[in-house]
Amino acid sequence: ASTADPTKTHHHMISSTSSQLFNQETLQQRLQQLIEGARESWTYAIFWQSSYDYSGASLLGWGDGYYKGDADKAKSKLKTASAAEQEHRKKVLRELNSLISGSASAPDDAVDEEVTDTEWFFLVSMTQSFFVNSGGLPGQAFFSNSPVWVCGPERLANSGCERARQGHVFGLQTMVCIPSANGVVELGSTEVIAQSSDLMNKVRFLFNFN
């Protein structure tokens, strides 16, 4: 197991059994491969990595994510964001941008583009983690070791999972969680996408590193 480094780890995430197996670059490539090559139009893909908190409880936290966006940008545009909310999103994005590129760097025009609902949902996901037994979609998929496929606005809103409910609010119509070695691959789309074994096989092929 890896050693804890409080300067690098998120509050309660102290160990990760799989961090040495996953290199960030290959995770990013695999997530990209998964949705860029797909027939269906997925908005994003996230790898939730399994780890443990101090008490030994199983936890899923951010491993990596790839945001593709929507072919039809209008679909992910500001269904919920008021002008004040949009200003808030831009402010956060500017701060994150200077965190990454250094505060001395030139202001970046792209940062001042509207932050769409699905972009915001993706960004907020980076701060989240889930207990495996808490009933949410990623935990459910990991715990039962079987895929969870939720599509259609009513099913997302009423799935009993806070993350799915949030996804629905931010314009998603399909959310899928597929278990893999050491974690769960989650995909989301602003379109209704029917379950396909093709995608699940692809996840098994790309993410079962062991």
């Binding site: 300067t7 998120h10 951010w62 990596d64 965190l99 990454i100 583009e113 960004l123 980076m126 701060t127």
Partner: peptide, 26 residues
């Protein structure tokens, strides 16, 4: 954001970079 963990930082950098590319291509 000081304690923003490494994995998230890498994800964020790639998200921002691709966002910049999308804005330029639009």
């Amino acid at each position: 954001y000081v304690a923003f963990p490494q994995a998230r930082k890498a994800s964020l950098a790639s998200f921002l970079e691709k966002r910049k590319q999308r804005a330029m291509n639009a």
